[in-house]
Design a protein around this nucleic acid. Structure first.
Length: 257
DNA sequence: ATGACTGATGGAATCAGA
């Protein structure tokens, strides 16, 4: 089965691109981020017509996450990280799909550094750590998929020296990502392609995509029982070259049945 | 070098993204 994550940068503007991609690649489960649409205006009918059950948490203007499942209804488990009731951002959604537990997450950007936004990013990361530990402890096969807004290593940045003070590449943020890996999560794309330059985001300006000046910030982290089924992983770069594309491309994994 | 695009809101200019 194939599972993908895609930061769409606005589902209203991106619906044709997303529907074409679903039609062409027919992934079994899809995590979407940056819906940028209120809950009641999410185009659920378009996804149902394409053969996907869907759960989502929207928000006006910013954020917003969804989970699609081909031919079945995802069962929502958490509509937010469960350890801060004051946090109103729609950045985390967790559901069960056919015995798999899957989370669609959109980690805060955190720029500029330092700032309250960067503090919020670090706090959000530590809340994710706390929750991820309980997910691992449960033993349920789990995937954390989404836009982590972290380039884990210099191999994941076209020009690492220019990003040293950026919130996506600061040492404490990379360390937070490393801790997740150390605790037992598998970075699917990097595990199957240890030495390859692979990007998932290219900024819109300065011909970044044409120059391949990209970042790898969208990730699928696998719990051990899912990692043992990992057989393929990659990025659908062609989607970044579509008409009116997102600035991110879909990232996918293939699992044995 | 923080600029350069793009999307959402609202109906222009501003915020936010990464």
């Amino acid at each position: 089965m194939r599972i993908a994550t895609f930061n769409v940068n606005g589902i209203t503007a991106r619906l044709p691109v997303v529907l074409n991609w679903l039609e062409a690649f027919r992934p079994d489960i899809v995590c979407l981020q940056e819906l940028k649409i209120p809950q009641e205006r999410f185009p659920a009918d378009a996804f149902r017509a394409a053969g996907y059950g869907v759960v989502w948490h929207g928000q006006i203007s910013w954020n917003g996450v969804a989970i699609l499942a081909k031919g079945t209804e995802p069962e929502e488990l958490h509509g937010a990280l469960p350890n801060d009731p004051e946090d109103r951002h729609s950045r985390y959604l967790e559901a069960e799909v056919g015995g798999l537990r899957i989370a669609s997450l959109y980690l805060p950007n955190g720029n500029p550094v330092p700032s309250p936004k960067f503090d919020y990013k670090l706090r959000w990361f530590s809340r994710l750590h706390e929750h991820a530990a309980s997910l691992l402890a449960s033993g349920v096969p789990t995937i954390l998929a989404g836009d982590f807004n972290v380039m884990p290593t210099a191999l994941d940045v076209y020009a690492p020296e220019r990003w040293l003070d950026d919130a996506l590449f600061r040492p404490e943020v990379r360390e937070a990502f490393r801790r997740l890996i150390a605790e037992g999560w598998t970075d699917a794309v990097r595990t199957l392609h240890p030495d390859q330059r692979i990007y998932t985001f290219w900024k819109y300006y300065r011909g970044a995509f044409e120059r391949d000046a990209g970042l790898r910030i969208d990730h699928l982290l696998l719990s051990p029982s899912v990692a043992s089924r990992l057989e393929a992983a990659g990025v659908d770069r062609g989607v970044r070259g579509a008409q009116r594309p997102s600035d991110h491309a879909p990232v996918w994994i293939g699992l044995t049945d």
